[in-house]
Amino acid sequence: MLSKDEILRLNLFSAEIRKATIHALSTAGSGHIGGAMSMVETLAVLYGKVMNVDPQNPHRKDRDRFVLSKGHSGPSLYAALALRGFFPLKELETLNQGDTILPSHADRNKTPGVDFSTGSLGQGISMAAGSALGARYMGNSYYTYCILGDGECDEGQVWEAALFCAQHKLDHLIAFVDYNQQQLDGSVEEVCHLGDLRLKFEQFGWYAQEVDGHEVSQIYEGIRKAQGQTGRPSMIILRTQKGWGCEYALAQPICHHLPISKEIEQQEIERLDREIEEMKRGMA
């Protein structure tokens, strides 16, 4: 279980990730803010507590791997990586510009700390499966974590991978679905209802849990339980809200991709700074 201080620390990390993400997106002028925001707490738990990674040696062989299957949410991953020291924070201001190391979608060719290029939806989970299988050849020395979007679960390949991971008993694979209920054309329910995702993965042979995706303690507990599994892969359904932690995004009917002005950035950062101050007072 996380201590109260650790929870505070990870909430602070989440707020810092949000600030850095909004700053990057406003520099670019627009971006996929909704999905970038909804997975922030999971990134904070992974990069702030769980994952064995070394910013000074991003290619270390025994590092844990991360696959951002919903590759369009790259900006908050970049913020987490920059805050962990994989590259200077200043790089975030080059998001999606010419010659950047931070393209809109995650790219292993360009970004230190990014293990897999993603962006075309429905495919990351198969690569994560390959990565988890690869761990076996190295004595199961690492875990592979993968975040999928809910909308991309429309893709048939996700379910090819769901079968494969169970068949191969990939217990060093821990996947998440960021179930924020929105995709480009509308709500997930309206576009292509996913039904009971937890039950679906269970029936595919996974150990499946459902947690509040904005509660770091629940995410952490979910990961700990998943790490305790043997002989089956784990799925953690993150109940989230698209745009969470950015009032501007939350106020839009659909916040998948939005313009972000400097004024909006200022308002959001001021609000996040106030939250950070409150949290710090709580720590003291």
Binding site: D115, F116, M127, A129, G130, S131, G134, Y137, E160, F164
Partner: peptide, 23 residues
């Protein structure tokens, strides 16, 4: 021998994952 079943798209990406980890 890694059997993926009749799923070529998944097979190629599984291979990508394996290659990214040194196989």
């Amino acid at each position: 021998y890694i059997e993926c079943g009749i799923s070529e798209q998944g097979s190629v990406d599984v291979a990508a994952g394996l290659a990214a980890c040194g196989q």
